[in-house]
Design a binder for these strands. Structure first.
Lengths: 236, 236
DNA sequence: TTAAATAAGTGTATTTTATACCTTTATTTA
DNA sequence: TAAATAAAGGTATAAAATACACTTATTTAA
């Protein structure tokens, strides 16, 4: 029998086990005060009706990353969102419904920026990180790991902006960092440090809802950041 | 028809695609001067005869972590080795032999501490990180990511000791850090800093091969470390 | 036995970075 | 126009990182 190399290798691989591969998304949002994560009420067995991360199975013809983007989109309607792979969870019995290897991702979205209908359809709800309910399988472990990684990541790279509106005040930005790190910071030190990176542009426009004086808006300048990122920076 | 919940969910999952799931191991070693990684000459198609990471498929009844340990053991004969999950690589076409999702791990071993027969059987060879050959699939990308992660990790946790003999001199330790970070360090500053962590015990014994005076051996004291790790430390 | 050679071992001064801390300013509203 | 509100901004101190060079222990060869 005459086989070319590709056929050979398909035959070669044929005897190995094939597994279900899933993705689960930890979706973070910031409401100005608290860091929150988006959960859904699981709509199918096993564990129907319990709180769960949004997830789905990886198809034969899509990459794992694409599957994660698809799942995020199915819940929020959003695309082109900051998303990063967290960890692959591969215990044999992690899902009582069968052998499922799950690759967890975390995403950062602007908390008001989603498709209401899709969210309702999935019974989605934001939970403050301090008040995460019981969750199915190993999803709570995923949550914990995601929170740790967010803390690490945000200290090295300016990804926090993905959680804020396009224009934001320095106090809103500080509030975000305080929420992520779960500790208070000094306003003057924070301002000095963040402005020193020179990756924010000050607008000639004030946010006046929360104060009479009004606080200037800033925007994140991605180009400035990329220029300095090449030289290697630690963020905060 | 009467189905219990478990049967329900197996049926539920049945319609989804199953994929081959592999693990690949980046195995680091340190020869006193250079950081090296262990590669094998791939013994089967596709890409037979090319340099590759040691890998294998995950079986139905083993966790992904266990598969990685098994694969490491198959090549080196070692078990109970420092090993950490790196990243899941999930592109559709990453392996020309079929749809394979691969979870990469990196391991730190003592470079002389392996089973010679197994190594020969797999045509394994150590390559300095600076001189990594062409590799199959996305293995070079895995290598690069592993090197980055090792740098990050070693700065936060005292895992570097896994690459050194049980007893080592301060200069050997410094050499390791210099190799990992690819830059020279000041001997006095390094010594002061590392001893300040108070996780090393000085032995009453000297290494006398590389100097006439001889340098004292030290050992890593894991208990001391664990005590201080709880209080949270940044390592170097 | 002693001098030369070798790498180990050690301390201080300087710079940079992080932290602690409070008054003035702009604006609105009563 | 005074009172209320939150924004804006600087300095002094402490801690950490860096730069830098001589002395010591030991072996080996003269």
């Amino acid at each position: 029998m005459d086989l070319n190399r590709k056929q050979m290798s398909i035959i070669q691989y044929k005897s190995y086990d094939r597994l279900l591969v899933a993705v689960d998304c930890i979706i973070f949002g910031f409401d100005g005060t608290e860091l929150k994560a988006l959960m859904i009420k699981r709509g199918f067995d096993p564990e129907m009706g319990k709180w769960s991360l949004m997830g789905g199975f990886v198809n034969q013809m899509e990459s794992v990353d694409d599957a994660a983007s698809r799942v995020l989109n199915q819940l929020t309607g959003l695309s082109s969102i900051y998303m990063e792979q967290l960890h692959c969870f591969g215990d044999v019995k992690r899902d009582p419904g069968g052998r499922v290897v799950s690759v967890a991702y975390f995403a950062l979205i602007k908390i008001d920026d989603y498709n209401e209908a899709l969210m309702q359809e999935h019974n989605a709800k934001w939970f403050p990180l301090k008040k995460i309910p019981a969750m199915v399988f190993d999803h709570k472990q995923m949550m914990r790991l995601a929170q740790e990684r967010l803390q690490q990541k945000v200290a090295q790279h300016p990804i926090g902006f993905a959680l804020l509106p396009d224009k934001f005040t320095l106090q809103q930005l500080q509030g975000l960092y305080e929420a992520i790190y779960e500790r208070q910071m000094d306003k003057r030190n924070f301002t000095r440090k963040i402005l020193a990176f020179n990756i924010l542009n000050k607008l000639n426009e004030k946010e006046k809802e929360s104060s009479k004086k009004g606080a200037f808006y800033y925007v994140f300048d991605k180009k400035k950041y990329e220029r300095m990122d090449k030289e290697g920076l630690k963020f905060l």
